[in-house]
Design a protein around this nucleic acid. Sequence first.
DNA 1: AATCTATGTCGCAAACTTACGACATTTAAT
DNA 2: ATTAAATGTCGTAAGTTTGCGACATAGATT
Lengths: 116, 116
Amino acid sequence: MTYAKTAAFTQEQQQLARVAKALAHPARVAIIQFLASKQTCISGDIAAELPLSRTTVFQHLQELKALDLIRGEIEGVTVCYCLNTELLKQVHQQFTGFFIEATAGAACGPDEACGC
Amino acid sequence: MTYAKTAAFTQEQQQLARVAKALAHPARVAIIQFLASKQTCISGDIAAELPLSRTTVFQHLQELKALDLIRGEIEGVTVCYCLNTELLKQVHQQFTGFFIEATAGAACGPDEACGC
DNA sequence: AATCTATGTCGCAAACTTACGACATTTAAT
DNA sequence: ATTAAATGTCGTAAGTTTGCGACATAGATT
């Protein structure tokens, strides 16, 4: 018993957790920022920009691709990776909804704990 | 070499990844939602609400507490857990900034890949 | 004091993640 | 046809996460 018990949670919770997981490594955050900074879709030499081996970067790219957060099209000998901005916008909405729900109540302040 | 090479990324990237990681498990998302749903800060019988053992829930609570996203104060025999809404708001801003940056460019559409 | 209840802590097992080197494949040049 | 460059795939090693049972603590009751 050590598998992730994801099945027992709501689709919403699973979806949010899935995306959060995709962003849960600085390399993947960096990859998304890098792709966003390039107006033109850049090839896999993203690796050259990061302090990681090409293989490792490729692996991170695969994870992002698995969630369809980024796309990759083979163009001859290079690959064109780019952000799926549509999906990212949706995800943004999702996170916003979550955070709004979470920050709605008047719970603990910054320094003191709650007074319940 | 299999440790996380976090040191090589910016503070910003690391911070975002750290918080994302905290949300990267449906149980933790559920815990936050549960705490948010209770106007009064509820004790650790959060476990009763989730399909996980008390020990496991406690562990998830520790992770959230390590990032200060939630607070926990011992009150006699019960514990009062609650959300750090201030921090959550900051985190929300952080994520929003990231997503806006990421969705600013006109990259791939929903179905076709980019045309670069 | 003995007990009950709500917590917290340890240690372990299984699964997942991160990182990489080495090898395979594919397209473009020479 | 060879070779070179850019990718993709495999296998492995080590670290981290997830989940839980068993045991330890600490107030509150009786």
